[in-house]
Design a protein around this nucleic acid. Structure first.
Lengths: 251, 251
DNA sequence: TATTGTTTCCGTATGGCCTACGGAAATGGG
DNA sequence: CCCATTTCCGTAGGCCATACGGAAACAATA
């Protein structure tokens, strides 16, 4: 599966949907059976339960007891629907601007990770050219405000912003991958790592990979706790170090 | 499009393919018209030219003047083929272990980015649970060796490794997104940012986004050079800062 | 009430995709 | 020449998005 992205559809239409431009109450004509919000909610529900791969237009329509083609009256197509889904769940972050700038960015990272945990399919949505809706924009404002408070020059703020945003979304996406695979294949994430065993047994070459070998012998891979904890720890560390670096760059 | 990943197919079979376990030369039977390598090469060629979305089994077979179903004799399925493609292009990195540990990681990042630039469809391949082939493993050994030389404790090396690897692949994927969108939609990447204009014109709210407004007024968004240069600069900065942080964490 | 204009609903059809199945074709050894 | 073995691949089934066009519902109007 390749990363989902909004197609080349009319950007004006997509933006109007993202910002829920007043539905222009029609005084005439047949009453709608479903609303955009219902469609988005149903799509999110399906994706939450069965993964983005199962989120077909037919499946969403079924969820709403509506004909498949009815959806196209309210939404231009599947790509735009995914944009709407992503922006909607990003709005769940509910960011509160308390503490130091570092604490606020940590808060942002945690809230974003929570979104990915609650909606694992976010892993499959490209966040590089994200939907320009309120969910995304509010998050960007939050991070920019925190970085601006750090004392960085304006130009540096924008550069640091890209680095932080990329890291946070990447981290959140990685963290979720275990769970996601579990949903799709019915196999536990950790058991995938179990199948890694096969590699170590049959293909690992001590001569070719001396560093891995010595790290292994040094016990560096004896993880305590679950794999998920371990991955999370790595990314907390990574964020801390990134922020350390950004902070140090100010001097 | 959701991120492509190898299915739940037999891991042993996939590993054997990734490491090209001796094809067990058959003395009997019909001669193969195509080899695994040819299939992988054709698939890469198609994806390079037309994107991963265009890389269908039928399209690859056509490229080789072979029936679609013939491919399944050599490759278990599409998911496994994508794994093979990814590991193959990662082998192009040709990593040379020169310089300080920081220089080597920078080198690794650059080579990895080059792979993404040459094969933009890599953006659509999940690198969180990557194919355990030589291309990937050699890269991991390289990064681990560099980090081990930095003076970090073994346990710290493995954690830093995850952070670096995540950052590099995330950065490379982001950088490539402009180009990728161009291929898929026939629209220039920068013109997508042009359509961003619509957002600023019709939906941007100065009250809601004060930091963005003041950054804008401070000229922080007056980028020189192309967008691609600008994105690249951001990630060079991010990597530097991450490495600064990792280095600082040793004290 | 009947008509008309407007809007939504949705059945059908097209063209794409992956891949299971099973038979046809090729090949080299006996 | 036969035949076991291997590869090739046509057919078909089951998904998918969505273009098209007509049916259905509704409000205002006649």
């Amino acid at each position: 599966m390749a990363a989902e992205r909004s197609g080349g559809g009319d950007p004006a239409r997509t933006l109007a949907l993202l910002w829920r431009t007043p539905p222009e109450p029609k005084a005439v004509g047949r009453k709608p059976k479903v609303s955009v919000d219902q469609i988005v909610a149903a799509a999110i529900a399906v994706a939450d339960r069965e993964g983005l791969g199962a989120m077909s237009m037919a499946r969403v329509a079924q969820e709403l007891s509506v004909g498949t083609m009815s959806l196209y009256t309210h939404v231009p197509g599947k790509a735009e629907l995914i944009d709407l889904m992503a922006d909607t769940v990003l709005q769940e972050r509910d960011l509160t601007p308390d503490g130091t700038w570092r604490e606020r960015i940590k808060h942002y990272a945690d809230r974003t990770r929570a979104v990915y945990q609650a909606h694992p399919w976010m892993r499959d949505v490209s966040m590089v050219r994200p939907p320009l809706g309120p969910g995304l924009m509010d998050g960007q404002e939050f991070v920019l405000a925190a970085l601006a408070d750090s004392g960085l020059e304006p130009r540096q703020v924008t550069i640091a912003h890209v680095a932080v945003e990329g890291f946070v979304h990447g981290a959140a996406a990685s963290e979720v991958d275990d769970r996601q695979l579990e949903v799709v294949t019915g196999e536990s994430g950790d058991s995938w790592w179990g199948s890694r065993q096969l590699f170590w047994d049959d293909y690992f070459d001590v001569e070719r990979y001396p560093t891995m070998t010595s790290l292994w012998n040094a016990g560096a891979y004896d993880i305590e706790g679950t794999l998920a904890d371990s991955v999370r720890k790595s990314f907390d560390y990574g964020l801390e170090k990134l922020l350390d670096g950004i902070e140090g760059g100010m001097r």
